[in-house]
């Protein structure tokens, strides 16, 4: 009994210590959509982050109520058709989800299947047409983003590539990017904003008035690794060859990656998204 009491005391003391050392820490609840796919890894990676004066809580999201308690959301890898159909069939979830993803104030990050779902409404190509079912609809997280499913091919074409991503901490340390039946950017054609390529020039500056809407390209595969162009006569229109190899893109609080940072053993992209998109640091 006594030792239990001591334990409780000790725990609560350690927990209050960091708070006492500075101003009140910012508490952030980040949801990870947990309908299907590799969501638990995102939760564990978020829990591993150490950001000064910030307390991050990561929770799995399966219902509308759970989503409403969050400030930010990760849409994980998995099968985009499954995530879509489970969301549609879970009462009340899809409308709240769409509002969340389209709200410029909300930070949202889509990986692989999540990137497919972040495309604009009529921006998903590559799925097989099933009689009586309209083409898959994007959730509209990034303006002008069109995505082609599985453009890199079947599992036999899945691959890993080590890439330097200048926007991350330790920019010269290669990031192990794992592409699993990965989607590719079909084209990036925002109507109202510009596209800035930050893979070459880290010091590229974006005017403050533009920052929330400019599309920033943060990682591009070298030309020999870019996938073959998709059919040019689809409902998406012709693809843009220069966009096919863009694998990490940010627009304000929104981020998409066609690979799986949650399988890399490296938390730097999670750290980047939380710092830049969620906390606005």
């Amino acid at each position: 009994m006594i030792s239990y009491h001591h334990l409780t005391l000790a725990t609560s003391t350690t927990m209050t210590l960091p708070m006492a050392s500075s101003s009140k820490p910012r508490r952030v609840i980040i949801g990870v959509l947990a309908l299907q796919g590799a969501f638990i890894e995102h939760i564990h990676y978020l829990e591993r982050l150490r950001i000064p004066n910030t307390v991050i809580r990561a929770i799995p999201i399966r219902t509308a109520d759970q989503l409403e308690s969050c400030e930010a959301l990760i849409i994980p890898g998995g099968e985009s058709t499954v995530i879509q159909s489970v969301a549609e069939r879970t009462e009340g979830l899809l409308p709240i989800l769409l509002d969340f993803v389209r709200n410029p104030q909300r930070a949202v990050w889509g990986t692989c299947a999540g990137m497919i779902l972040m495309a604009e409404e009529d921006g998903i190509g590559g799925g097989k047409v099933i009689k009586g079912r309209p083409p898959q609809k994007g959730w509209g997280g990034i303006e002008g983003l069109k995505v082609w499913r599985n453009l890199y091919g079947t599992q036999l074409e899945s691959f890993e590539a080590h890439m330097e991503i200048p926007a991350l901490s330790q920019p010269t340390k290669p990031f192990n990017c794992i592409f699993i039946r990965a989607p590719a950017v079909h084209s990036l054609q925002p109507k109202s904003t510009s596209v800035a390529d930050l893979t070459q020039d880290l010091h590229h500056t974006i005017a403050p008035t533009e920052t929330s809407t400019t599309i920033e390209v943060l990682a591009t595969l070298p030309s020999e690794c870019t996938p073959p162009p998709p059919p040019q006569d689809s409902h998406l229109g012709p693809s843009n060859h220069e966009d096919l190899g863009k694998v990490m893109i940010r627009q304000g609080s929104k981020l998409v990656t066609s690979f799986h940072p949650e399988l890399s053993g490296d938390t730097r992209i999670h750290q980047y998204w939380v710092e830049k998109c969620v906390l606005g640091m």
């Binding site: 890199y152 091919g153 036999l156 074409e157 899945s158 691959f159 890993e160 590539a161 080590h162 890439m163 330097e164 991503i165 010269t172 290669p174 990031f175 192990n176 592409f179 595969l221 070298p222 020999e224 690794c225 996938p227």
Partner: peptide, 16 residues
């Protein structure tokens, strides 16, 4: 895998 061989970033390249 798809054509990557030591060209990506500074790393070991892409492997399928």
């Amino acid at each position: 895998g798809r054509g990557v061989s030591g060209q990506v970033g500074g790393g070991a390249g892409g492997a399928g």
